[in-house]
Write a protein that binds this DNA or RNA. Structure first.
Lengths: 204, 204
DNA sequence: TTTTTTACCGACCACTTGGTCGGAAAAAAA
DNA sequence: TTTTTTTCCGACCAAGTGGTCGGTAAAAAA
């Protein structure tokens, strides 16, 4: 982790460019040559560092995609106070980032989940692991929200988490085709609506 | 439409098998040879009926995918009474069908929308057209629900439609990886929760 | 300085891709 | 029956595909 600095640097460059192109064109529609060309590197360099295209992608999942999802959707939520406002802010922020990103091809996680669904179980599992961490985190903040008096005690936290993730994945898919601002606005409005039906009732 | 019966039959066979494989493996990960092999047909037959792979897929969208979405998600809703119960039944039914389908690779429409996003605008547009029809239909039934006293008048019908479609696309993506029964149950429960927050208030 | 290890090059391989084309059965029309 | 049209065959092509391998600079170790 000290001596092989050059190694790490090159691998990282490959991973970054690889993710860019995979995200842009899809995994099966991106060749290793494409990636190498845009890096001015050779086949030899690639297969010196990675065993195969699949191995390469797995390393991208573990190094880059995990971090992306973490920093955008998990960390902003962990251990905060009012679940509803925290999640609301987090989603709003994530959608706004996507909206202003010229190169948006949808939610990276759900894109790859659906591309690899049943086609490559190894990769699918790595992706589902990320999804599960996200889910667990949502559930735990909702549970905490119950003890803190924000969330109604009758609410099914796991159900809410599933519903949140589903809807988020869905809008992100729809957003790619443009009209993002409008979609985001409508989505956030309904999200608040939904949340209002889950809030703890005022004690009269 | 009478003389070229054989023509239609062969084209239809190709389209059906084509959709099967495209849905299963993805468009870019399925070759024409794959389809031809499973039909015991030759290249010549294919290019006699279709101009290109893209042209072929467009015909599949217009003939098969449109109908699928229509019969599963649009027709069961058109012009019915209580929007909430109608949509609820429709979604429940659609999810159950998917759940019991051995070969489920996610919601066909959203799968292809994300596969072609920004990679093939021609096909993307055809897919988005279907999505739009679905949306329009949801909006119109919600609006009708307002005049019929089911839906609260302050509700933003377009927002609700967007939210519904998003969440549906999302669960369908999640369902592929198994645990469908549980996902469906949780999803439907939250959907009802959400709907309850949109219902017209009882006149005291 | 010499030796060894690390990092990279690029020709090459077997195979697959979408697509073409001359021809030949099969069916329809004459 | 003969002719024409429709439908399909399959060899072929150029352009990729993921992956291998013998070799070589440059850096590190000796």
């Amino acid at each position: 982790m000290d001596k092989n600095l050059k190694r790490m640097a090159t691998m990282h460059r490959m991973q970054v460019t690889g993710l860019e192109l995979f995200y842009k064109n899809g995994y099966y529609n991106t060749s290793i040559d494409d990636i190498l060309k845009s890096l001015s590197l050779s086949k030899g360099a690639f297969y010196y560092h990675f065993q195969s295209k699949e191995d390469f992608f797995v390393s991208i999942v573990q190094n880059l995609i995990v971090r992306k999802v973490y920093s955008m959707l998990i960390e902003p939520i962990e251990g905060k106070e009012n679940p509803f406002s925290v999640i609301e802010n987090c989603f709003e922020n994530a959608l706004e980032t996507a909206e202003h990103n010229e190169m948006d091809y949808g939610f990276i996680l759900s894109n790859f989940i659906s591309e690899f669904n049943r086609r490559n179980t190894v990769i699918s599992n790595y992706l589902m692991d990320i999804y599960k961490v996200w889910e667990v985190n949502l559930v735990s903040i909702l549970q905490k929200g119950k003890s803190d008096g924000y969330v109604d005690r009758h609410v099914d936290s796991e159900g809410v988490a599933t519903y949140l993730i589903s809807s988020y994945m869905g809008v992100r898919t729809l957003m790619v085709q443009g009209n993002c601002r409008n979609l985001r606005y409508k989505y956030m409005q309904q999200l608040r609506h939904y949340f209002s039906s889950l809030a703890a009732k005022e004690i009269a």
